[in-house]
Design a protein around this nucleic acid. Sequence first.
DNA 1: ATGGTGGCGCGGCCA
Length: 254
Amino acid sequence: MRIITYNVNGIRSAMKKGFADWLRSDPADIICLQEIKANAEDVPVADINATGYEVFSYSAQKKGYSGVAILTKLKPKNVICGNGLQQSDAEGRVIRADFGDITLINAYFPSGTSGEDRQAYKYQWLDEFFTYLDEVRKSRPKMIICGDYNICHKAIDIHDPVRNKNYTGFLPEERAWMDKLFGNGYVDTFRHFNQEPHQYSWWSAFGGARANNKGWRIDYINVTEPLKAKLKHAEIMPHIVHSDHCPVFLELKK
DNA sequence: ATGGTGGCGCGGCCA
């Protein structure tokens, strides 16, 4: 099973930049998208279907904001939009699909860049999401969790850890939450295979950040311990450019 | 400390 997580920064914008051609190249069996920035009726479902993927999407109440989707060639047993947490669901941030005994959860974590109230929301969201994951795991122990977490885990995951040490996305409290998640049996699959520095999945739009690889690793694919023996390959795909983020890939053995 | 860019929808807001 090949899985990609990708914050597309607007599905319609990505389509204008060749996203459908990339889908036709068969990059994965399942592609989890964040920030589709489109109401359900504005998602280009027919164009995506024509590339060979079925589409399940979940939009925010606010038009053109947030939203997640799962594009898949494998038929899911069921799909659940939202996670029952009121704050998450209003902003279209979580979608789940079950494939056999594997549960996939695709999440777009809040950003804290626009102010203290959004940072407070982010902390509440993190707490609720952690509780939600552990609740799902009780009945569905084989889980894949992926998405835009909007948090760098460690200094190795950010181009300038000193300058950003008090900046949202790299705050000690946020990094501690990542420690807690990864320490609770959710494996950071990219770091399972790759310990190298300068491996990023997002670059600021400002100041030529991407050209100079001044990025952040904020997009992740986690698996629970029962799937650890199935890990086959993981990589970040910075050469794919329809967005300010790039895709992150994971392959599991059959 | 500020400003720099880009998507969405048509105002600024959000990232």
